[in-house]
């Protein structure tokens, strides 16, 4: 299965150019879409989830025209939006049943089996009778994943699912995701670089509506191999360094700034080589250093 996105463009009424000639090829497995806030990730997610139209471009899922044949897409789609609410005073079981009916599961016995299975899978079975509106953040996201897996979808779109979750909850979430079968395209958007590194083989980096990089995570790292150097400096010196070198990122370690710079060769001056991380690639691309 392959999802090919060709020349996708979208501009909102207020002038924001959300998608700018986006081209991507996505195969089965976990695909990470990385980008800062406002990059266009959610716009892309919503377009793929048939909630939005594009101004121009084409999206094909094998032979299926995603932009035109919305109904067919919805039948094989699992979608977890970035923010979602739930009906008050409705239990997880009831809500899953409701959504399952909407996805076409009208036979109540089979539906019941599936709902139970899903709840167990996301570890919400003990809380299934409680109102979803009373769940904590982590439990809610788990519910979200459960509903997106109804009916064994072939295309699963998960939009920034771990924002606001503590590390333990995040892990649990990704464990569930990673068990989604092999023959499924899972597109995961996030601004947490580490998640992409852990979960995905293929990825893309987006900013301001444009794709800055598309390829495997390994290849991304190759871009900056042996070209990243770090140094701890004083706060007052920061500006000088920023003028003199290509500073990729600047983090506080023990209260003092530690900068990563990009250089073809070692700049000396107290810089030591740093192990290349995906984060560096990310920032480098963002600041158009590479």
């Amino acid at each position: 299965m392959k999802l090919s996105i060709e020349g996708l463009n979208k501009q909102y009424a207020n002038g924001v150019h959300a998608l700018h000639d986006v081209n991507l090829d996505i195969g089965t497995g976990m695909f990470g879409l990385l980008g800062p806030n406002g990059a266009g990730k959610s716009s892309l997610m919503r377009t793929l989830a048939t909630l939005q139209d594009a101004d121009s471009g084409r999206v094909m899922l094998d032979d299926l025209d995603v932009l035109k044949d919305k109904d067919a897409v919805r039948r094989i789609l699992g979608y977890l939006p970035q923010e979602f609410g739930v009906y008050p005073r409705t239990s997880a079981t009831d809500l899953l049943h409701h959504l399952a009916v909407l996805k076409g599961f009208t036979a109540s016995r089979e539906r019941g089996e599936m709902v139970d299975y899903l709840l167990q899978k996301v570890n919400l079975y003990e809380h299934r009778k409680k109102a979803v509106s009373s769940y904590s953040g982590g439990m809610r996201q788990r519910f979200g994943i459960a509903q997106s897996l109804i009916g064994s979808p072939k295309l699963v779109i998960v939009d920034e699912p771990t924002a606001g979750l503590d590390p333990g909850e995040r892990n649990r979430f990704y464990n569930i995701l990673s068990e989604i079968g092999e023959q499924v395209i899972v597109i995961l958007s996030t601004h947490i670089v580490q998640d992409v590194r852990e979960l995905c083989v293929n990825m893309a980096i987006m900013d301001k509506g444009q794709v800055l990089y598309a390829g495997t995570t390994d290849d991304a790292l190759l871009l900056i191999q042996d070209k990243v150097f770090e140094k701890r400096v004083e706060k007052e010196q920061l500006e000088t360094y920023q003028q003199r070198y290509k500073v990729i990122s600047n983090k506080l370690v023990g209260g003092k700034p530690q900068i990563h710079v990009y250089a073809e060769a070692g700049p000396g001056d107290g810089f030591v080589p740093a192990e290349e991380t995906l984060e560096d690639v990310f920032f480098a691309k963002l600041h158009q250093l590479i």
């Binding site: 989830a49 909630l51 979608y79 923010e83 979602f84 609410g85 008050p88």
Partner: peptide, 11 residues
């Protein structure tokens, strides 16, 4: 209740 995205994506 902000569930419209999920509902609208159902077939």
């Amino acid at each position: 209740v902000n569930i419209h995205d999920i509902q609208d994506a159902t077939p």
